[in-house]
Amino acid sequence: MKAVVCDAWGTPDTLQVKDLQLPEPAPGQVRVRVRAAAVNFPDALLVAGKYQFKPDFPFSPGAEFSGTVSALGDGVSSFAIGDQVVGTTAFGAYAEEVLADAAQVIGLPNDTSDDELQLAGSFLLTYGTSYHALKDRAAAKPGESLLVLGAGGGVGLAAVELGKRMGLRVIAAASTEAKREAARSRGADEAIDYTTDDFRGQLKTLTNGRGVDIVYDPVGGDIAETALRSVGWGGRYLVVGFAGGGIPKLPTNLLLLKGSALVGVFWGEFVRREPEAHAANTRQLLAWLHDGTLRPLVSARYPLSGAAQALDALLGRDAIGKLVIVPSLAP
């Protein structure tokens, strides 16, 4: 099989496409013929040797995928050859075939279309994170206001779409008009530029001076304090990530003055510690995907040979929505 291979820590341009021996599933594993593999920020960190674990060389990046089951390890009875599935793994999805623990793979309905199967490959991490954040960590209630920072990216657009599905008034903040338009296409009630000097003033106007109920922040960096100052009484500030590169040092007196809360969101640990709650969330999300309620925005698809280009676009914050690797695409 062909796979994107990392032989040493480095930048995305060090990755190569190589022919590897087809892997055989160990007990409790399945092998999946990859239809699509999502391009996520942790993939770039893994290649650079900056992630929280480091696999042995050589390895393929890629932690999120969809496809068709092609082989079963001993003891796996929950799937059959040919089943369409979506799943996660530590690494290995930038390849024609990937191994994954059966417990981390979820079956899709028999009538799943090829287009839906490809979209599902970009779905679990972004929508799983955003749904866990809004439902479990923020306890969002219909009618509340939601400010989404970095609203043009994968998790940001998922938060916009889910926020509308959950009955929230969504204010999308993004740095370019193209990203703001993408947020509007996913239901944002307002879309504003958070790089302008009057960002806080815009939020005050849009909330009639009350401030926002929930901030969803996958960006971090310099904008975080301004967003925290824009939280209203009893608000919740969701710390999702630091795509902007900087970990902000926030003045905690602001939390006291507004009776607000700073809330961490770590979807991967939630999946590990609360598998039943994660499974229930995933079933709901996949049902919404299947009936068309949710529609991930995949802005670009790349062949295996385009993995470096895709990761560079992600790191440069040029991507709108999700980027995916499609092994069947010709170079």
Rank of each mutant, 00 (worst) to 15 (best):
A102W: 07
A102C: 04
A102L: 04
A103R: 11
A103L: 11
Q104I: 05
Q104W: 13
Q104Y: 12
Q104N: 14
I106C: 12
P109V: 05
P109S: 06
N110T: 12
T112G: 03
D114V: 03
D114K: 04
D114A: 08
D115T: 03
D115V: 02
D115Y: 00
D115L: 01
D115A: 01
D115E: 09
E116L: 12
E116Q: 04
Q118G: 06
A120S: 11
F123M: 05
F123H: 02
L124T: 11
L125A: 11
L125C: 10
T126S: 09
Y127T: 00
G128C: 02
T129L: 03
T129F: 11
S130A: 07
S130R: 07
S130M: 07
Y131E: 08
Y131I: 05
Y131H: 13
H132M: 14
L134H: 14
D136G: 14
D136T: 15
R137F: 15
A138W: 15
A140H: 12
K141N: 13
P142I: 12
P142E: 09
P142M: 06
P142A: 13
P142K: 06
G143A: 06
G143N: 07
L146N: 04
L147H: 10
L147N: 11
V148K: 00
V148S: 07
L149R: 04
G150C: 06
G150P: 10
A151W: 05
A151E: 04
G152A: 09
G152I: 03
